[in-house]
């Protein structure tokens, strides 16, 4: 137990010490917010308004949870990948020769990466007033544990990937074939409707899809939207024909995290021998 805390603590200390990284990691989400929120926002809003007669439709409200999810995804995956650096620069050996069990090492690292991502994600909320979006305190409180859970799911994915990669060389590859498609095929930046079958299949398996959807359902008053807007904005998710519930999404993410932590632990054991 103490081992998990120690590994987690190391990530937290380093996060607060590395101010430039903290600031730097906002550049990408803000860029996306500008490109999709302002750039695409205008045409999206006029399309939705014309199609559904929803006069007060605000696209930025839909994109913000997506951008926060994107921040959670990128930060937690990149933090988890830092164990590759630890392997190259030696700190991993210090951990591996200690009596801390392998599964606790994986859990500690997952919690560390998830916490760092969570903190980054929470910091995004200072942008809300600038964007002119309001959120009631209760929804925000509910959002915090959900965001942490989402970050855990992404961090465990990063951990599994890190255990399979031999060097930082594969980093760019991971970003290109994993992180970017996961963002684009999640509904984080634009609604995914009427996709060809194989794309919907990928969307259904993508954990980011459910993270984004959970956050949207908490942040946006979905009940007050007309059925047309809900459909247009991709808020009626289905899981192989079944309508998706928020409880279902929570279980999916928890199950995903557990499974990937186990796989990552096994993968580390194998790499070790």
């Amino acid at each position: 137990m103490e081992g998990i805390i120690a590994i987690w603590q190391r990530d937290i200390i380093k996060f607060f010490r590395d101010r430039p990284r903290m600031v730097g990691s906002f550049s990408m989400p803000i860029l996306f917010l500008v490109v999709f929120g302002i750039g695409m926002g205008g045409s999206m809003e006029s399309l939705v308004r014309a199609g559904t007669n929803a006069e007060n439709f605000n696209y930025t409200e839909f994109i913000f949870p997506g951008i926060v999810s994107m921040t959670l995804l990128m930060t937690s995956i990149f933090s988890s990948l830092s164990i590759i650096q630890d392997r190259d620069f030696g700190y991993m050996r210090e951990i591996l020769v200690s009596p801390v069990s392998r599964v606790n090492i994986a859990i500690g690292k997952m919690l560390g990466s998830a916490s760092v991502a969570f903190l980054q994600g929470v910091m995004m909320f200072v942008l809300l007033p600038v964007l002119g979006i309001g959120i009631d305190p209760l929804s925000f409180l509910l959002l915090l544990p959900v965001m942490f859970m989402i970050a855990c799911a992404f961090a465990s994915l990063g951990l599994l990937v890190a255990s399979l990669l031999n060097s930082m060389q594969g980093f760019q590859l991971v970003v290109n074939i994993l992180v970017m498609p996961m963002i684009f095929l999640s509904g984080a930046l634009f609604p995914l409707n009427n996709m060809p079958g194989w794309v919907s299949f990928l969307v259904t398996l993508n954990p980011v899809t459910y993270g984004v959807d959970l956050m949207k359902h908490i942040m946006i008053d979905v009940e007050s939207l007309s059925a047309g807007v809900r459909q247009e904005m991709g808020l009626n998710l289905t899981f192989f024909g079944q309508p998706v519930t928020m409880t279902g999404e929570v279980f999916f993410l928890l199950g995903f995290t557990t499974l990937l932590i186990l796989l990552a632990t096994l993968s580390f054991r194998r790499a070790n021998s």
Partner: peptide, 15 residues
Amino acid sequence: KLTAKENLMLHCKFY
């Protein structure tokens, strides 16, 4: 990126 004390503290916890 950690201080001497932090490095030693983590080691105490690992063990």
